[in-house]
Design a protein around this nucleic acid. Structure first.
Lengths: 109, 109
DNA sequence: ACTCTATCCATAGATTATCTATATATACGG
DNA sequence: CCGTATATATAGATAATCTATGGATAGAGT
């Protein structure tokens, strides 16, 4: 039996971008936020999170800055850029279209 | 810019199994059915479809039989098995849980 | 007869996303 | 001083999808 993913593949970037609309956040905090808000359904593993953040940085959808946390630890804070905001909008609307389409297929005719 | 998928990854098996609850169908017909019912949003490429059907066969979720189509062409008809039906149920409920969780993250607090 | 299009199956190889596992480092509570 | 939680990151494995082929045939149109 294939192990099921902790995420719906293809949605991670969108989730991260969306989370950053709430506030600039460091990676660990993003993962925690997604886990908490989803009531522990969505778990972002570290091996998925950090590569994803690198991707988002490369594409200019987020920018990063090293800072100290409230508890005095070093962490890299990510902020959504204007391009990232635009990208998020596109991903959101595309996601809705997809979900609606899947809903039609899953519905009994 | 990375090319976007024609599907939400991770949902193909579920879509195929669900399609087979309507009627036994051959691969080509399954793809057409999904495309049509989704209003052309979801396109199952042949390179995704046939490997997926092999997976489902291997797992015993569908069985296959060579037959003639109405138009006298040779085609492999797939039927949902009892295990496949059970599997579909699990995937459906898991999908709903995931979608609901994603919805919470995408929602503004 | 010939050609074109749609129907039908299937695999190889590339790409991408995710996971598991590992490594490093430090603040803080007990 | 030890364990746990916090924090970042990469390597390698796995899995799912896509692109690109290849083959075969029915039927329509010319």
């Amino acid at each position: 039996m294939p192990k099921k993913s902790e995420l719906l593949p293809g949605t991670l970037d969108m989730l991260i971008l969306k989370t950053l609309t709430r506030a600039p956040m460091h990676g660990y905090g993003i993962a925690q936020s997604i886990k908490r808000i989803s009531d522990d359904v969505l778990t972002v593993e570290e091996g998925s999170l950090y590569p994803a953040l690198q991707r988002l940085l490369l594409q200019g959808w987020v920018k990063a800055e090293w800072k100290k946390t409230e508890t005095n630890r070093r962490a890299r804070y990510y902020t959504l850029t204007a391009e990232g905001s635009k990208q998020l909008g596109e991903e959101l609307s595309q996601f809705e279209v997809m979900i609606a389409a899947i809903g039609r297929v899953l519905q009994d005719a």
